[in-house]
Simulated assay, not measured.
Amino acid sequence: MHYIESGAGTPLVLLHAFPVDARMWNPLRIRLEDQLRVITPDQRGLGESALDGLSARNVGAPSGDRSVTERPSIDLAAADILDLLDQLELPQVVLGGCSMGGYVAMAVLRAAPERVAGLLLVDTKAAGDNDEQRTNRLNVADRAEREGTNDWLAENMLPNLLGRTSHEQRPEVVAGVRELIDAQPAVGVAWAQRAMAGRPDSTETLLSYLGPALVVVGEEDTITPPENARELAAALPEGELVTLAGVGHLPSIEDPDMFVEAVRPWLSRIS
């Protein structure tokens, strides 16, 4: 598994959204590495991480069964992260995830809550997909395998990934996210969509987590809007909620200064 690491101190592992890679966290890295050891992996099949052969475990399998299933799943993506933590000899980390990265973070929490010293959930939700959402994901996966992604994936996703303010006032952000989307391998895009389509509801997992948790949401997010964030925060016994104005589904890219200003006090308390 490919990852980017910098800084020193409490380890902060950040899991990226779909369909981008670990570089989405670079604006945060340069603002937090004076305080934390920031680790940002490319998830399976995206960025520079291979599609196959990453994990030696299947977190959904009975204890002792470390066989790898070929079926795409968020649990397998979580197993990749746990293997990375083992490789880096990190018994506990502050774990964060945006969108798909949040789904994976919740799967890590479900599999190994003792590894999570703090939970940061950004523009994500606990609920699984409904039938329409699941069908849409599978259709995107099939098209990616059939045609590649070229320009159509970015064209389809950019309107909702970024907030209205970013589209109107931050052309460099729009161009940068388009570049990240266009760089993703079609096979990884397909795998991730199928994995997300089959993910379970994580509400019970959140209800049982007693550690510190921060939920961040962009006020202009139309994919996982503020009401989803309120539900997440309410499900977490120690959950706190921050809503950021003028940003959408990717606030760490859209306005990294505002994002860091919002999360740094929480990170300082738990680190």
Rank of each mutant, 00 (worst) to 15 (best):
A192M: 03
L12S: 13
S268Y: 12
G64V: 04
E168I: 10
E70D: 12
I181C: 15
V215K: 12
A105K: 08
L241T: 00
Y103M: 14
A229T: 02
W25E: 15
D182P: 00
A111F: 06
P41V: 00
P11G: 11
A105P: 05
Q35M: 05
L180K: 09
G163P: 13
A77T: 03
E114V: 10
R44S: 08
A234D: 03
S49W: 13
V177C: 06
M24L: 14
P91M: 11
P171T: 15
G118E: 08
D65C: 14
L232D: 04
A141F: 00
A22E: 06
G246V: 00
L210G: 10
R66N: 12
P256H: 14
L109T: 06
G64W: 05
A235M: 03
N160Y: 02
G64R: 01
A112G: 03
N150P: 01
A78I: 04
G218H: 02
P62N: 15
A234N: 03
M106V: 01
S49C: 03
T135Q: 10
R29M: 13
D142W: 01
G60E: 08
R199L: 08
A183C: 13
V13A: 06
A192S: 08
V94A: 13
R143S: 01
Q169V: 11
L244R: 00
D255T: 04
Q169T: 13
D52Q: 08
S6P: 08
A22I: 11
E227T: 14
V13M: 05
V116Y: 15
A50V: 13
A192Q: 12
A175T: 08
Q35C: 04
A233D: 09
E168F: 06
L12K: 00
E231N: 09
L161R: 00
L214M: 11
I81T: 05
I181W: 11
L210M: 09
D182H: 12
V189S: 10
L32F: 07
L12Q: 01
P171N: 07
V173F: 03
I253Y: 10
L120S: 08
Q133G: 07
G188C: 02
A141L: 05
P251F: 08
R29H: 04
E261M: 11
E155S: 09
T165G: 13
A77D: 14
L267R: 06
D201W: 11
E168L: 09
P27N: 11
S67T: 05
H167L: 06
V247R: 01
A61D: 10
R115D: 10
P91V: 14
L54G: 06
G246N: 12
R199F: 11
L206Y: 00
R66G: 07
V215E: 07
Q35S: 14
M106H: 10
G64T: 10
G218P: 02
G96C: 06
W266R: 00
N130C: 04
S6W: 06
N156M: 13
T69H: 11
P171Q: 12
E132R: 13
R199P: 09
G45V: 03
P113E: 02
R71P: 00
P159H: 08
A154V: 03
R269M: 03
